[in-house]
């Protein structure tokens, strides 16, 4: 009899906790790992009943995962993935169209052109060059101030950049150069740059982290990463090239077919709120509601004016062709160097 009683009470507890269970959202993201806890905590301050299960990986991998799972989606929400990747998914019909509360406050650049939009932007993530000043002294080269500078012979084997095939940052760089210099001169520029490249990395933050450690003197990466490394005490300088810089947005979207549509909408609403924007501003200088933006430590101040007028639709549409061209030019040249 006693056992029966305890079983019943056990079942009651289970049933009770199930009824009160939080809604759990599986959220795919490429946001820097160290920020994830902060993002979830701030969100839970306002919405304690929704639990976020992060799936964090680099842009390329998260994009690949989402596309691979197209037939059998695992994610409820995407929060913090490159807009170009979301455009790809929009093209595949994988995103739920939803106009979040407060969308009007966002810079129009930060909202999908469709109505209702399928994605909304959080912050901009801009290209930058990280230069290790200790190594610079050792090798005695001048500080590069423009993209074109990087093709000079004095930087031979001193530059690392992300491979556009696997890195969102890498693709952002390549697509921006094609827009800045035009297609023909863009490829010519990359031919010159390729001569000086020591290696291509799979991840966008790696070149800057490697520059921070002096593994390469110069890393083509993004400003956020450079600022972080500098804050950690790395001897680097963050350069915004004068021709202008490519950029992409970290953006948010709901995955079509989610079982938790209401909770997903709540999260997306929150993701464009003022509170969220202020939170993004702790790491990023350019955010969706730019009027709220305050300067960020170690971030070069001139970033907003150097951001090119990026044509995301063009970049997404031509992604395959650009990557194929890039590969045939530079991947096949990856012969043994010794």
């Amino acid at each position: 009899m006693k056992t029966l009683k305890s079983i019943v009470s056990c079942l009651a507890i289970i049933a009770f906790s199930l009824a009160n269970a939080q809604t759990e959202l599986t959220v795919y993201t490429a946001v820097e790992a160290e920020d994830l806890k902060k993002y979830a905590d701030r969100f839970n301050e306002d919405h304690p009943d929704i639990k976020i299960n992060w799936v964090r990986d680099s842009t390329g991998i998260v994009t690949a995962k989402l596309l691979a799972e197209k037939e059998n989606p695992q994610a409820d929400v995407i929060w913090g993935l490159a807009a170009t990747s979301l455009l790809l998914m929009k093209g595949e019909g994988m995103l739920e169209a939803y106009s979040p509360n407060g969308v009007d406050a966002l810079d129009p650049k930060f909202v999908d052109k469709s109505d209702p939009p399928t994605w909304t932007g959080m912050d901009a993530w801009v290209a930058a060059i990280c230069v290790n000043t200790v190594e610079q002294e050792k090798y005695g080269f001048a500080t590069p101030t423009s993209w074109q500078d990087l093709t000079k012979p004095e930087y031979k084997d001193h530059v690392a950049m992300p491979n556009p095939s696997s890195s969102g940052t890498g693709f952002l760089d390549v697509s921006s150069w094609l827009q800045i210099f035009g297609e023909e001169d863009g490829w010519k520029f990359m031919d010159g740059l390729h001569e000086n490249i020591h290696h291509y990395t799979h991840s966008g933050s790696k070149p800057c982290k490697q520059a921070a450690r002096g593994e390469v003197p110069i890393g083509v990466s993004f400003a956020f990463r450079g600022a972080k490394s500098k804050a950690e005490g790395a001897p680097i300088e963050i350069i915004i090239p004068e021709e202008g810089i490519g950029w992409d947005m970290e953006a948010t979207a709901i995955v079509k077919g989610t079982d938790n549509l209401e909770a997903a909408k709540t999260l997306v609403d929150w993701s464009i709120s003022e509170k969220a924007n202020k939170m993004y501003n702790e790491g990023y200088a350019v955010i969706g509601i730019q009027s709220l933006a305050k300067p960020v430590e170690h971030f070069p101040e001139n970033i907003p004016e150097k951001m090119i007028d990026n044509d995301f639709e063009w970049a997404a549409a031509n992604r395959k062709a650009i990557l194929a061209e890039w590969q045939s030019r530079y991947d096949s040249k990856s012969e043994p160097k010794s």
């Binding site: 690949a64 491979n163 095939s165 890195s167 490249i197 291509y200 990856s334 160097k337």
Partner: peptide, 15 residues
């Protein structure tokens, strides 16, 4: 940048 088959699979799929 020295490509081998194993890393190619990873790059093709993940990248």
């Amino acid at each position: 940048d020295f490509n081998v088959l194993a890393t190619d699979i990873y790059k093709q799929v993940i990248g």
